[in-house]
């Protein structure tokens, strides 16, 4: 499975971003306002279900998960 693509498609769909070209895989999702403060939990739940992984509090603290590429890196570590 293309992890980056799966995550990007989910985020574009769940946060009503559509095909806005300003969102790249290195865009800060929260600072740039693409994902609101309630969305972080939503994304992590999606990752855990879709990739059958567990993301612990240590992962959240240690790894930045602010861009699609950063989120994908954590998923790659786990699967």
């Amino acid at each position: 499975m293309d992890v980056e693509k799966t995550i990007e498609e989910y985020i574009r769909d769940a946060f009503e971003i559509g095909d806005d070209p300003e969102l790249t895989r290195d865009t800060h999702l929260f600072d740039e306002g693409f994902v609101d403060s309630l969305g972080a939990l939503q994304i992590v739940r999606f990752l855990e279900e879709t990739f059958s992984i567990q993301i612990t509090q240590k992962d959240l603290v240690l790894y930045p998960m602010n861009t699609i590429n950063e989120i994908a890196a954590v998923v790659h570590e786990k699967i």
Binding site: S37, L41, Q57, K58
Partner: peptide, 18 residues
């Protein structure tokens, strides 16, 4: 407590225990 955890309340008890 790192700020990022406030977005993930279900992970906070684990942080407090550790």
């Amino acid at each position: 407590m790192p700020d990022v955890l406030t977005r993930f309340p279900d992970r906070i008890p684990e942080f407090l225990e550790e």
